[in-house]
C-alpha cells in the first residue's frame, strides 16, 4: 500500500448525502477486473448521461475539478454495498482523500486497505469547505495527515481519523504483514477453541 503523509491538490465538492457505493461504481461494472480501468467509470451514471455524454453540470466534469485528488462529500459517504471496487474506482481515478461528516462503515474499512484516506469533519466544516470551493474552485486544498488538519485558503479545519488507520497510512502498512506476526497466538486460540466451542465446527456431511 502506498503511504500518505500530506497531500496538496484540487478538491471537488460532491454535496450529496448518502452517496452510496452503487453511485460510486454501478453494479454492471463489478465484473470488470481492476486492470480494465475502473477509474474511467467512477460515478458513471452521475458523470455521464444515457448516451455516454458528460453531464457538464456534474462537479467532477467541471474544468477546475476534473483532476481532483480530494473529494469533499456529504454525510454517510460510501454507504451501501461492500464492493471494494468503489474504492478502486476512486483511487484509480486519482482520488487519495475523501473528506465528509461521516462514512459508511465498510467503505472506510475498504479505503484504508487501499491507501485512501477518509477524513471526518463536522457538518459545519464540510459545508464551509464546499462553500469555499464553490466560491473559488481552483484553489488547492492541503490535507496533512500528521497534523490531522485541512488547509483551504487561510482557514484550517481539523479532522478525525481512526488512529490505527492513520498509522497504517503514514507508514504504508498492509495488515496481512502485521497479522503474520500473530501466527502462534492464532494457532493457540484455535486449539483451545476446539474444546471450548466444539459445536462451532461444521458437522461433517456426506
Amino acid at each position: 500500500m502506498e503511504k500518505l503523509v500530506s497531500l496538496t491538490a484540487s478538491a471537488c465538492p460532491l454535496n450529496v448525502a448518502n452517496l452510496n457505493t452503487d453511485q460510486l461504481l454501478p453494479a454492471r461494472f463489478l465484473k470488470w477486473p481492476r486492470s480494465a480501468g475502473i477509474g474511467k467509470v467512477l460515478l458513471h451514471d452521475l458523470r455521464f448521461d444515457a448516451e455516454q455524454r458528460e453531464r457538464p453540470d456534474f462537479p467532477l466534469n467541471r474544468p477546475a475539478w476534473r483532476d481532483a485528488k480530494i473529494v469533499v462529500g456529504g454525510r454517510n459517504f460510501g454507504c451501501g454495498s461492500s464492493r471494494e471496487a468503489a474504492v478502486y474506482a476512486l483511487y484509480d481515478y486519482g482520488v487519495r482523500c475523501v473528506i465528509a461528516p461521516s462514512f459508511g462503515d465498510i467503505f472506510s474499512g475498504n479505503a484504508i486497505q487501499n491507501g485512501l484516506l477518509t477524513a471526518i469533519v463536522s457538518d459545519d466544516d464540510a459545508a464551509a469547505l464546499m462553500a469555499a470551493l464553490e466560491a473559488k474552485p481552483d484553489q488547492p486544498v492541503t490535507v496533512d495527515l500528521e497534523q490531522q488538519i485541512i488547509l483551504c485558503g487561510n482557514t484550517t479545519y481539523p479532522f478525525t481519523v481512526d488512529p490505527v488507520r492513520r498509522m497504517r497510512l503514514l507508514n504504508g502498512w498492509d495488515d496481512i504483514d502485521i497479522t503474520d506476526s500473530y501466527r502462534d497466538r492464532i494457532a493457540a486460540f484455535k486449539a483451545d477453541d476446539r474444546t471450548r466451542r466444539p459445536w462451532a465446527t461444521p458437522r461433517a456431511t456426506s
Partner: peptide
Amino acid sequence: FGIGASEVAHVLMTQT
C-alpha cells in the same frame, strides 16, 4: 458483518 475484498483475502489467508 460484511467485509471488502482485501478483508476477504485476509480471512482466506489467516481465518482472522
